[in-house]
Amino acid sequence: MTIFQKAMTSAAALAISATAAFAEAELTVYTAIEAEDLARYAETFNASHPDIKINWVRDSTGVITAKLLAERDNPQADVVWGLAATSLLLLKSEGMLEAYAPAGVEKLDPKFVDKDETPAWVGMDAWVASVCYNTVEAEKLGLTPPTSWKDLTNAQYKGHVIMPNPASSGTGFLDVSSWLQIFGEDDGWAFMDGLHENIARYTHSGSAPCKLAASGEIPIGVSFAFRGAKSKAAGAPLEIIVPSEGVGWDMEATAIVAGTDDLEAAQKLVDFTITKEANEMYNVGYAVVAYPGIAKPVEHFPANLLDAMIDNDFEFAANNRAAILKEWAGRYDGKSDPK
């Protein structure tokens, strides 16, 4: 270590302790954001709000949701920053969210804001369903690329499709709920009946189908676009297909937990999360963000994705979740005997 480096390090340490000393408020923030992004987000926030210190509690979407629900009567979190909107709707329906219209909310794409007069949550970015298609394996099997969801029920794909189990994967559920919205209830289930015939298996996680397609384990994986783009960047022979009927999506969103000790600091944080600056920060990983007109294209992302996003009815998805999953399990999980 050179003297210069040493000096820099101690300066940095000094700066950090200074920040800590300067911090007047501390917020416990629950999140499902990728661990590697947390530090970057907090840094960007602290650049403009050095007086608020963020204590992250991070886990996967399911676990964080479960944790929040379990703490319903004694909430530990002040803010939820970066959790699926469908999860936030569950929290909202338990009366756990503090409605708040952050400054500048009107600038956001209305798709990304809770429909209530004073929104209970505001969106950050979206992850969008798509189909990962392994061109090498498909060619070996003599398959033609599908262009629509309906195509996937074609007999040529029998045993060549993998999708996430909606009961355990948020991605799986957004697929199912989007099909029910696109096709209507009856046709939606009829479509899934047909699709089920072609499904090799249902995975527990939402990103697995695309990774399995990338590794050639299966030619077609129903997953989300971001995952496909990443695998493609890693060199997998993938094509990311956006089905013509439109694709389901969910968003990461932010909300204040009702009963927070420091509402003022929480509001400041939420105000920040919808700024242009914050959305540019989200854009590093996500192609679709709430603040219109700033998103830069992400490498390997399908160009037409934004237009294909359906007008998702989150309320429908949240309120019918239990019923949909019950129906789904009854139709497909119950029959999952050895093939």
């Binding site: 379990a70 527990h204 999953l325 999952s336």
Partner: peptide, 20 residues
């Protein structure tokens, strides 16, 4: 795969569906 067993069901119920 699609072959459900008890131990995995517990996991699916809890982690997947929050149905404790």
């Amino acid at each position: 795969g699609q072959f459900n067993v008890l131990a995995v069901d517990i996991y699916k119920q809890v982690i997947g569906q929050q149905n404790f």
